[in-house]
Design a protein around this nucleic acid. Structure first.
Length: 573
RNA sequence: UACCCCGUGGUGUAAUCGGUAGCACAACAGGUUUUGGUCCUGUUAGCCAUGGUUCGAGUCCAUGCGGGGUAACCA
């Protein structure tokens, strides 16, 4: 994992987490003396995909609660469906959790508890509250009824415990094919909560498991594994998202009917939604599989690997998670909150540099050929300790095309014919002449510089409002820049009319690659994983994947706030 | 259509036992500034509705309205 080689550590001071309802719940439990004052949580991903922004919220919540209450937080992989899960996901998830800045107290897999879970299942059978059912999947669904149709008892519901136990053992022994039988809890086939209509606890699946190999051919369902694993790990508060709320009665029922060592409590919170992106494993997988993005770590992806490669820092992610809060109301966080979090962090730690994205040649006519003056530039005005560097000032320089207008609009105080601007850290120049090619495209600006305007002064005290960034044309080097924007152009990409593909909301301009940006010479040796602010442009990250020594590739993490763009846009409306 | 959950400025959220509705972001206005960045100051703007209990309701109760979740041998 690469991270910020020369950014000052801990720039973003960790603020205490904001108060939310889960604190109230835990405080109440503590006040009642539950669990002997102990607080223990867990982050329980299924290893069937990569972690994203939504997981970051859950990770910060669970580890944050443990930290706040002086408790523990485990990492537990919910690996009960071997056909979908694998070691690659296990590894990436651990890497991402650590990148976010958390270390688990204990590492568990649901599969570590398969034997205990099996014994619990036998207990349920022996006590008459679970039975082996011979119905197939379609039949189970049909007998269960639906939201508005009552359920009917399975014909196997009254099977004797002895018979069920014998059958269940034969299931384990591999005597039946996939789907032939299930173990079901005997609860209430007419409950308004479909989760209590004799839920399936175990199913037959002759599949190789990434950890237990071929030891098992029956695997527990989520509902039968999760609460019991919580109990076996001595979790006190089992935090999950709102869609599991309806499972809570089953979670409690199982704990009540089993000789478990602890009685954890499930508390649900609203999952994270962010504008201009999607956060569902299924859709993210589709983006990867269809080649719309370059992979799970494409910097446009809301995956942790994606935003990391975009240049987001763990500090910014934690600050973001703190700012969005925790509640039981489904909401969508504005993407600018995320962007603000990374700007805030990088403003303090990123070294400044100059880069010209769309170069326009400027010749300074009153400077001799071959002239080089080395000018001091501050590395980070927010951090004096970061020092200064030298910039070569020469007869030919590049400025950004966007910083020149032949017909300047109102309030435009950059360069235009006859106007004067300051070159950042250097002298003021005045535009004398505009040169163009046969097609009429501007190819060069001829300017004069005022030698009396060094170090921010003007000699006669006149005000020069406009300041533009620049690089020496002789000494600049070219590098590849990738400019990223929202992956979707719609604020709510999922929100499409019936029959319309959510992918129709993709933003065709989400990636613009610049092959010939001109950068100041000091950037040639920009270390992989470093963060920079290209002055007046944005924050950029040296991509650890595609950069080579002497040939960095920069990813735009986020633009700087641009109040001029706002003014100009307003003028157009 | 059944059951469950949830409604606080534009957005995301707070308010101990029922006691002046606060914070952040956004927006707008101004100040500082060799980044139209940062920073500082200020302004606009909210308890879904109706009724009830109470000296007093965002908070308790009822009804209505609105939003979300749930019908996998997924998690």
């Amino acid at each position: 994992m690469t991270d910020t080689p020369h950014a000052s550590a801990g720039a973003a001071a960790e603020r205490p987490a904001h108060h939310h309802f889960i604190h109230d719940e835990i405080d109440a439990d503590l006040a009642q003396g539950k669990h002997g004052g102990r607080v223990q949580t867990r982050f329980p991903p299924e290893p069937n995909g990569y972690l994203h922004l939504g997981h970051a919220k859950a990770i910060c919540l669970n580890f944050g609660l443990a930290r706040k209450y002086g408790g523990k937080c485990n990492l537990r992989f919910d690996d009960t469906t071997p056909t979908k899960e694998n070691q690659e996901y296990v590894d990436s998830i651990q890497e991402d959790v650590r990148w976010l800045g958390f270390e688990w107290d204990a590492l568990f897999f649901a599969s570590d508890f398969f034997e205990e879970l099996y014994q619990y299942a036998e207990h349920l059978i022996r006590t008459g509250v679970a039975y082996v059912c011979d119905l197939n999947a379609d039949q189970v669904a049909e007998y269960r009824g639906s939201l508005d149709k009552p359920g009917r008892p399975s014909p196997y519901r009254e099977r004797s415990p002895e018979e069920s136990l014998a059958l269940f053992r034969r299931m384990r022994a591999g005597e039946f094919p996939d789907g032939a039988r299930t173990l079901r809890a005997k609860i209430d086939i007419n409950s308004p909560n479909p989760n209590l209509r004799d839920p399936v606890l175990y199913r037959i699946m002759h599949a190789h498991h990434h950890r237990t190999g071929d030891k098992w051919c029956i695997y527990p369902m989520y509902d039968f594994a999760h609460g019991q694993c919580d109990a076996l790990e001595a979790i006190t508060h089992s935090i999950c998202t709102l869609e599991f709320e309806i499972h809570r009665p089953l979670y409690k029922w199982l704990l009540q009917h089993l000789p478990v060592p602890h009685h954890p409590r499930q508390i649900e919170f609203a999952r994270l939604n962010v504008t201009y992106t999607v956060l569902s494993k299924r859709k993210l997988l589709e983006l990867v599989q269809t080649g719309i993005v370059s992979g799970w770590d494409d910097p446009r992806m809301p995956t942790l690997r994606g935003i990391r490669r975009r240049g987001y820092t763990p500090e910014a992610m934690r600050a973001f998670c703190d700012q969005i809060g925790v509640a039981r109301f489904n909401s969508t966080v504005d993407r600018v909150v995320l962007e603000n979090a990374i700007r805030d962090d990088l403003n303090k730690r990123a070294l400044r540099a100059m880069a010209v994205l769309d170069p326009l040649l400027v010749t300074i006519e009153n400077l001799p050929e071959g002239h080089v003056e080395w000018i001091d530039a501050v590395n980070n005005p927010e951090d004096p300790a970061s020092g200064t560097r030298k910039l070569p000032f020469t007869k030919r320089i590049f400025i950004d095309r966007d910083d020149f207008r032949e017909d300047p609009p109102k309030k435009y105080f950059r360069l235009s014919p006859g106007k004067e601007v300051r070159l950042r850290y250097a002298y003021c120049i005045t535009c004398k002449e505009v040169k163009r090619d046969a097609e009429g495209r501007i190819t060069e600006l001829v300017c004069v510089y005022d030698p009396a305007t060094a170090n921010g002064t003007t000699g006669d005290g006149r005000k020069v409002k406009g300041i533009v960034h620049w690089v020496s044309a002789d000494q600049a080097f070219e590098a590849k820049l990738r400019l990223y924007d929202h992956l979707f152009s719609a604020e709510f990409p999922d929100d499409v009319p019936e029959g319309v593909d959510w992918k129709s909301n993709l933003n065709p301009g989400s990636l613009v690659t610049l092959e010939h940006a001109k950068l100041e010479p000091s950037l040639r040796n920009a270390p992989s994983g470093a963060h920079y602010q290209f002055e007046r442009v944005g924050y950029f990250y040296v991509d650890p994947k595609d950069s080579h020594p002497g040939a960095p590739v920069f990813h735009r993490t986020v633009t700087l706030r641009d109040s001029w763009a706002k003014i100009e846009k307003r003028g157009e409306e």
